[in-house]
Design a protein around this nucleic acid. Sequence first.
DNA 1: ACCTGAACACCGTTCAAGT
DNA 2: ACCTGAACACCGTTCAAGT
Lengths: 224, 224
Amino acid sequence: MPRSTAGQTGRPPVTSRPEILAAARRLIDRDGWEKLTIRGLAGELGIGATTLYHHVRDKEDLLLLLLTEYAAQLPRPELPADPRDRIVAAGVLIHDAFAAWPWAAEVLTTDGFIARIGDPALWVVETILAGAADHGCTPEQGVLVFRNIWYFTVGEILVRANTARRHPDADFPPAENSPFTGGGSEHLPYLTAVAPQWGEIAQANTFAQGLTALVDGLLAQAKP
Amino acid sequence: MPRSTAGQTGRPPVTSRPEILAAARRLIDRDGWEKLTIRGLAGELGIGATTLYHHVRDKEDLLLLLLTEYAAQLPRPELPADPRDRIVAAGVLIHDAFAAWPWAAEVLTTDGFIARIGDPALWVVETILAGAADHGCTPEQGVLVFRNIWYFTVGEILVRANTARRHPDADFPPAENSPFTGGGSEHLPYLTAVAPQWGEIAQANTFAQGLTALVDGLLAQAKP
DNA sequence: ACCTGAACACCGTTCAAGT
DNA sequence: ACCTGAACACCGTTCAAGT
């Protein structure tokens, strides 16, 4: 008996989990991740919306599968030998992975997915812990280093992704209609002075620089 | 002619913007901010849902009003004289304000509100820019310092708030069902070693410590 | 086995009609 | 002036019925 198409019982499938995940990625890449809806995804596949529930537990499960697939597929490059440089490089890797897929970072925080990414993503955590230990950190200090890097990275991606969505070249303050650009700005001299250049300054990618500052500060704290 | 109740034309109001904002805060404090819906808010006030649109442009406008009101009401304490300590203190202030109202941080990133908070919140930005300048930073470096602090702070609050929502005492990895706690964890020795204590370590509030590391690292970069 | 439409319990928002 | 219900265009999800 052939095991693939013959001898089956019941109605034949119209889709599969891999097909669903591929369609979801297509939809996200095309319209943005906030447009990924169960109904829209079913439409993309040309099937009934409720059919999806036979291949995926719920929408949260779908997002988790998407994230896991993405994480597993990421390259795993050679890292520098120096512990400090290795930690920075690992942080940059996390950052670049999520910067290319900003919705992933958003999902990761907004829904508390952090604790549920599987094996394929854990080697980055291991790399940072190992780097900290090589530098002379205790395990506790290593965890601290990782968590602080994680905070910084998530924050940078979320702020950058969301400000880009609205103000293509501005960032924090100097919206033309902002109250401080009008009258009464005497008590905000520094802000008023940099306001014109803020947008330009904010546009530069300074993530690696900021991360380096954070890592250096953390390692200095751990080993005085 | 009395100016309050007599001589008016048209149907009398059933609510007002301050009443709406107060009800919204009540709802958020009681049920969490994801439960704040236009319909639910109208229900809380005992009025028709569509009536709200006569006092508030839309839901985004409502959230912005809420944020502005909250920011305006925050205390404005005395800060240390030393520039570095002042920057750290200002960062801790931002953090504590949003940590007490985590949904505000979430709104701030998820909807790109950052560029639109008004005057009452800008003095913190000014404080950080002034501190950086006092330390010898250029205006560009000052902006960099502020932005990095902002990333770190937002990230910390979002990650902490959302992991707390699900895993009361865990944070990143050691969920009991995590793949690496089972077999095949030989290539993750550091992670495996700290796994049992991770939750406990992650529970401590190390924000000020992490922020200090970041600020020290940034200031060291700016003035070698 | 797998698929489906109808239905449930929600959203934010608009608009013509009422007071 | 202000308020309102009905309606529009959506959500995620369940479930009985079909193939």
